[in-house]
């Protein structure tokens, strides 16, 4: 039975340079029934690591109609602990079965002892961490037999011992490991605001060849006295400032597959799709513009 399932998707379906949406369980049936015109869907593989049952059947069905991307939250690339080979093997099983067009993971850690925080905690940006992250990325890529994308994190604190700026660390990890970059534009905005970093400085070392995917999401704003902390809660539509930053990134980096992420206060599929179309309109107008200027 497993072999029959594997053979359904003999090769990865490329994720197109269109806008896509994070796949939520409450939208499964609408997507199957209405077959919306949407470029691709993204899943967290950890949610499909059961052995059978409904989630895998839904995913099998939706994968037969759309390309998918797998965005892992569990490998803990920045942990001092060795990677969990059971988790890696589960990830490989899903990648082999569903043949995603893209596979990605965060620049973060979640594993300090023999238990997991289920969160994305920022790294200590030192040479020691860099070597470790590069080794871990390479281990994931060797296991999966493919290149992965690494996402810039949103973060709320920094460690004093850090010696390397986040963007330099990220770009160096990508260069040394042969991975690509998943540029989360909202995370750039959130982290720069939270730490008083300059957005242009952050984006400066990022080049077109590195970036394989873009993420967009909404964040919350919390006031603390006369300061604000932005919380990456994926609970509201993308804000105006992040849309502006997105257009800036597309103009600089090209028409990169773009995902709208929504993980709390999940709206109807129609409402989510409107946001996806908003991103897609910009990708289209970028292509028209660049066609005019280059052609």
């Amino acid at each position: 039975m497993d072999e029959a399932i594997t053979s359904l998707h003999s090769a990865p379906a490329r994720v197109p340079s269109r806008a896509g949406a994070g796949l939520k369980a409450v939208h499964y049936q609408t997507i199957i029934d209405e077959q919306p015109d949407i470029g691709w869907f993204e899943i967290h593989p950890e949610n499909y690591m059961g052995q059978g049952g409904a989630p895998l059947r839904y995913l099998e069905r939706i994968r037969s109609d759309y390309p998918i991307s797998m965005h892992s939250v569990g490998t803990s690339l920045g942990s001092h602990q060795p990677l969990d080979t059971n988790h890696l093997n589960e990830l490989k099983r899903l990648v082999d079965r569903f043949q995603p067009g893209l596979v990605s993971e965060h620049l973060s850690w979640s594993h300090g002892y023999e238990w997991y925080t289920n969160d994305l905690i920022p790294l200590l940006y030192t040479e020691e961490s860099l070597k470790l992250v590069v080794t871990h990325i390479q281990q994931v890529q060797e296991t999966l037999q493919r290149k992965i994308l690494i996402e810039n994190p949103s973060s709320y604190l920094q460690f004093k011992q850090s010696e390397i700026p986040e963007q330099a660390f990220l770009v160096e990890a990508i260069k040394r490991s042969g991975a690509g970059l998943l540029l989360d534009v909202n995370n750039v905005f959130v982290s720069c605001k939270n730490h008083g970093w300059d957005i242009e400085t952050y984006l400066a070392p990022i080049t077109q060849e590195m970036v394989g995917e873009i993420h967009l999401a909404g964040h919350a704003i919390q006031s603390l006295g006369d300061q604000e902390l932005l919380i990456d809660d994926h609970g509201s539509p993308v804000c105006t400032a992040v849309w502006e930053l997105y257009r800036h990134c597309i103009d600089r980096l090209g028409d990169i597959p773009t995902l709208i992420e929504r993980d709390s206060n999940i709206p109807s599929f129609d409402e989510l799709q409107q946001e996806v179309q908003f991103a897609e309109q910009y990708l289209n107008s970028y292509r028209e513009m660049s066609h005019v200027t280059t052609g």
């Binding site: 289920n118 709320y156 603390l224 300061q227």
Partner: peptide, 27 residues
């Protein structure tokens, strides 16, 4: 003492502790 302190170090740390307690509590 390991955290960069702008007067909000404790609140910044709390974001992570809240994530840990609340998101796993949601599960």
């Amino acid at each position: 003492n390991e955290l960069v302190d702008d007067g909000l170090a404790l609140q910044r740390f709390n974001v992570y502790r809240n994530n840990f307690i609340v998101l796993n509590g949601d599960a």
